[in-house]
Structure formats: C-alpha cells, structure tokens
Design a protein around this nucleic acid. Structure first.
Lengths: 138, 138
DNA sequence: TCATCTTTGCAACATCATTGCATCATCCAA
DNA sequence: TTGGATGATGCAATGATGTTGCAAAGATGA
C-alpha cells in the first residue's frame, strides 16, 4: 500500500489540490496493478458521488496522472501513467490487454510497434488486445 | 451505388433474412467507404427505430458482415468486413484511423503488426490511431 | 486566521442502451 | 401459390450512463 505522503507528492507534482477523495482514488490506482474502469472504482467506493468521480478522473487525465483506454464502446478504463511520479507527460505507448475471463485490463510493458502512415498526421495510438490473460491460463 | 441484387446476395450469403431495413442500412455501408457510428446511421435514417438499429448492427456483426471498432469509450463504429461478400469470417486485422477534424473513421489497408505475448491467449486485436487524415491535410 | 479560488455533492436533465411483448414480414415446404 | 413456422420490427418501459448549474464546504497562500 502506498503511503499517504507519496500520494500527496504525486498530486502536488501535477499541480493538483490535495483532497480526501483524490487521495483515496489515487491510492486505489497505485494499489491495484491494473487499469480501472469507472465501474471498478464505484464498486470500491460505494457512496462516492458519480459526478465527482467523473471530474476526478477527468482531472487526473488532464494533469497527466492517468491515461484513458477505450475498451468496447461503452467502457473506458484508466491506467496510471508510467511517469506519474514526475512531471505531466501524456504519452502512453504500451499495449493494453483485456481478459475475457476475469475482465481485468492490464498495462503491458510491451510498446506498440511503430507504424507510419504517409499522408496522415498521427496524434494518438491505441492498441487493445483481448483474450485470456496469463493469470487465467495458469 | 450498390445494386439491390448485390445487397441481397450479401445478406443471403451470411444466412440472414432480407428485410427493407437491412437492405437500406447495408446499402449505406457499401456506398460509404468508411466505418459508421450509430449516430451516422441515425442521421441518415431519421425515423428508424433505435432498437432496430442496435439489433441490426448486432446481427450484422454476429454474422460477419461488419466488425466493430471501439473508438473513445462512448462511441462504437462499424466497418464492412473485407470479405463480407463471401462466407462469415470475423477477422479484421487492419488499422483504423479516426480523424479529429472531420470525424470520419477509415479502415486502412495496412495490417496490424504482429505482436506475441508469451503466456497470453490473444483472440482479438484492435488498433485505432487518431489525428488528421489524408483528406483534411490535403 | 482570513480571503480567494477550487472542489464537492446534490438535483435536474439529457442521452444511451436493453428487455419484453405484440404485431408483422420473410421464406420454406406442401 | 399459399399457409404456417420462424425471425424481425416497433413500441413502451426501464435502467444505465454522462453532463450542467449552483450552493456549500474545503484547500491553499498570504
């Protein structure tokens, strides 16, 4: 479990005010080694206000703590940025894997292969794989 | 514009009944050289029932005529399968590009680079890039 | 401690997606 | 060509999902 002081440092480093809700949610992200959907967070914090969650996640993303991962058109997952301990940096060029069995979304270490598209200007790349994860196979 | 007979052939080849609504929607997909969202289709067929659209798109996907493309967590696009004229075959291993300017989603000819994940069983791969498309740059 | 600006929580609203069911259309077989 | 079995459609109702405005509470720096 991450310490309270560490969580505060992350928020401060991204120029965000320290509030109880933000500390709780960010701690949850740090404690779970995976990407979380709004549903996951709602399940963990049952009496949290939905609006506040949306705004908190939005603020985390805007300030470079989280990156968003479009899953299946009705679900958005959020993962900690690799460099969330440092300055804001929105790049997130790793592969995501969603397990059909356990539903968990993982941020993999593996980078997305470079692709060049002549005539196009590429700003974002998102690669999501799905199937059965290493834990569920084992 | 695709001929009525061709559209019927595609539906028949995928073991689907021929109905007016299905013919209209499939014709629309064939006429547009791009992936369509539910919103695009609703804009084209203003008095179509939403439920029927969901079910039609779901049936097209299940029978291998369309593949779905998760865009940004709140939008799902659908594209014609390359082989939609033949037998059902759900594979769709090309790159998708969503333009931030015009909003159009294209199915590119370029295949998704092969990635191996030891310990994982991969069933689906989805790669969406976004930025500015060739038409908007030109 | 105070003043200021941000964040939160509630209410209301708008949109999106799903389910059940009665009716209608399609298609195959007689 | 027609009748019946099966599948598709449209409507109503419900539930889930996001968004906005605003007043109250909290965080931060002076």
């Amino acid at each position: 479990m991450a310490r309270y002081g560490d969580i505060k440092k992350i928020l401060k480093a991204h120029n965000m005010r320290i509030t109880d809700g933000r500390v709780d949610i960010l701690s949850f992200f740090v404690s779970q080694d995976r990407a979380l959907t709004l549903r996951d967070i709602q399940k963990e914090f049952k009496n949290a206000d939905r609006v506040t969650l949306y705004r908190t996640l939005g603020a985390f993303e805007k300030n470079g703590i989280l990156h968003s991962i479009p899953l299946d058109g009705t679900q958005m997952a959020y993962g900690l940025n690799d460099n969330s301990h440092g300055q804001a940096n929105h790049n997130c060029d790793h592969i995501h894997f969603k397990c059909d069995e356990c539903g968990i979304v993982q941020c993999l270490d593996q980078p997305i292969p470079k692709v060049t598209l002549p005539g196009y200007q590429i700003k974002q790349v998102n690669l999501v794989m799905s199937g059965v994860c290493n834990s569920c196979i084992a």
